[in-house]
């Protein structure tokens, strides 16, 4: 049997560094990774992307913290995509 323990909510965050910054600078991304990592919910989801998965409230709180950390470190853009796995029609209450 597979994962019936599906995360309630997942959020994918993609950090784009400020255009003025040195292109190789990964500080915003690293700051986001550190902030997300502390939550216990984070995995990598791509070269500059972070996946948060867990309960609804924890994920949303961590999204805020992570975005803040990235912005504070000089990120210009953070893309956030939140998906409610439990409500996805293919698995959820359909």
């Amino acid at each position: 049997m597979p994962g019936y323990e599906r995360a309630e909510l997942s959020a994918e965050l993609k950090v784009t560094p400020s255009p003025e910054a040195d292109k190789s600078s990964r500080e915003p991304s690293e700051a986001a990774r550190r902030a997300a990592g502390e939550s216990g919910l984070a995995r990598e989801a791509g070269p500059e992307s972070i996946m948060l998965a867990g309960g609804r409230r924890e994920v949303l709180e961590t999204v805020t913290k992570t975005v803040e950390a990235a912005l504070d470190a000089g990120a210009r853009t953070v893309e956030v995509r939140v998906e409610a796995e439990g409500d996805a029609p293919r698995f959820g209450n359909g």
């Binding site: 323990e5 599906r6 995360a7 997942s10 995995r43 990598e44 989801a45 996946m51």
Partner: peptide
Amino acid sequence: GRKVYGMEIPDQPVLAWEK
């Protein structure tokens, strides 16, 4: 699309990038 997959937590790279 999404560079990771997984049934419970999408954490496995479709193709590895840096690790």
